[in-house]
């Protein structure tokens, strides 16, 4: 029984990890693009991105997932998700869009949080815009965004469970399957306990990683 459970949970965890990794890889750069849009001097673009962020942050991820998975099939001649791993890609799109909007606000806070005097000091020393960004402000921004980003990323690990809404078989899906089997009470607590442990351990690792990053940058104050 133990081996069966662990094997099933490993399979589910692998899927959770896959969605987590793909979301991060997609949402980090997209978040940067959206944050630039929301700080753009060109009014209409700024207005458009801020509206997007408002809608995405203002509605549940679960609803966005359902809309992204089911609606295209109704309105397009061919359902784009009717491919191998279609459920995964639908989930990935919903997660990337959702998290990119949250990340963009964190990035914006990081950029606007660095005192304008830092940029001016670089300017009067004859530095170019890109030199000022890469040599002066970037590290100060990263230092500012690590704590809120670690929060968001830990939430992302747990939010991947929402993907089972569209029957994508991630970790909780795998643990929950034993409830409906013929394992009696043992099918209830063991799989659920282990499911929790998987999340806990993975988030423990992430917490250590972020703690290490914060410590690396604790030599300066900004």
């Amino acid at each position: 029984m133990f081996i069966t459970v662990i094997n099933a949970l490993n399979e589910g965890f692998l899927q959770t990890l896959k969605l987590f990794a793909v979301t991060l890889v997609g949402a980090l750069p997209l978040g940067l693009v959206i944050s630039f849009g929301s700080m753009c001097r060109f009014g209409p673009l700024r207005w458009l991105t801020r509206t997007l962020v408002w809608i995405v942050r203002g509605t549940p991820l679960m609803l966005q997932l359902i809309v992204i998975f089911y609606v295209p099939g109704f309105i397009l001649p061919q359902n784009p998700w009717a491919v191998t791993d279609g459920r995964f890609w639908a989930a990935a799109v919903a997660f990337i869009l959702n998290y990119a909007c949250y990340f963009s606000e964190i990035f914006r806070g990081g950029v606007q949080g660095v005192p304008v005097g830092q940029q001016e000091a670089g300017q009067v020393l004859g530095m170019t815009r890109s030199q000022i960004f890469f040599k002066v402000t970037l590290l100060q921004m990263i230092k500012r965004i690590v704590p809120p980003m670690s929060n968001e990323i830990i939430t992302l690990v747990k939010d991947t469970a929402i993907a089972r809404m569209i029957a994508w078989q991630e970790l909780i899906y795998a643990g929950y399957a034993f409830l409906k089997g013929s394992h009696g009470l043992a099918g209830l607590y063991w799989p659920l306990l282990f499911t929790g442990l998987y999340y806990l351990l993975f988030n423990g690792l992430l917490t250590l990683l972020f703690g290490w990053m914060e410590k690396k940058m604790s030599y300066f104050r900004s």
Binding site: P115, G117, Q118, E120, A121, Q123, V124, L125, G126, M127, T128, V136, L139, Q140, K143, M217, F220, R221, S222
Partner: peptide, 20 residues
């Protein structure tokens, strides 16, 4: 403008040293 700035130096009220 960038090169013209080099004719002047500026010391700020708030120092604005690069903390890192």
């Amino acid at each position: 403008i960038r090169l013209n700035r080099l004719h002047f130096g500026l010391v700020f009220q708030q120092f604005n040293l690069f903390p890192q």
